[in-house]
Amino acid sequence: MTAIAVGADIALAVRGLRKSFQGGRVPVLQDVTLSIRSGERVALLGANGCGKSTLLRCMLRLIEPDAGTVDIGGVQVTGLRGRGLRRVRARVGLVFQKHNLVPRLSVLTNVLHGALARGLSFRVWRQSWAPAAERERALTCLDMVGLAHLADRRAGQLSGGQSQRVAIARALMQQPTTILADEPVASLDPVAADEVMEMFCRLVGQQGLTLVFVSHNLEHAVRYADRLIALRAGRIERDVPATGVQIEELRGLYE
């Protein structure tokens, strides 16, 4: 575990997190402890099935952890309910491998949904009902990912790379402090994957956000992250700065 300077601004802290499925017969996370500073960019690595997605879901309590605590921006997430839980979730943008847009709605409407995080309700259900300021903001977010010209398209008509950019725009629309991304570019072709990662990291840097991204692409991990955290069978195996790490030595994680 890396030592954390006292008083450093901690964006995300996980302590002793455990999770098993099917009544304890399938232990997935075993005593995971990590702490991520504000503005840090972390790549989460590990073989298929080692628990990366489960860890991200547990952080937002989309899956209920069995034990341990999660702090986001100084608020303890474990134990929160209802409104309090929604408020914490709102500060974290979650981007999935599958973009999870609503295919039958317009691109702009999908981005507008990000404003649901800020407590806006039915006004942002559809773009035609939305306040002008929110529509402006959604268009700005789309512009950041370079897709403002597609605002009126149906989301279902976009390519994979475009969809993923829209999903990122939706996360930015939340005005989050942290972004968790679960293999955000895994379904994109190599060129699009590089482009989207590049753009993602640039935006995160510009807005001073904290980023945790899961990746099976070790080059991406070394290039775009400041720090690498590797899981093996539900435990943290390595937690090291990304600088000077050789890709070859990371391959051992997958054996």
């Binding site: 989309l62 599958k98 999870n100 039958r104 649901l116």
Partner: peptide, 25 residues
Amino acid sequence: QGPPEALTAMGARNVSVFACATLPA
């Protein structure tokens, strides 16, 4: 279930998740 999960993850209320993701689908 993907889109509803995405909206839940951002802290949307259940009515909004239903109206924005489940109903259109």
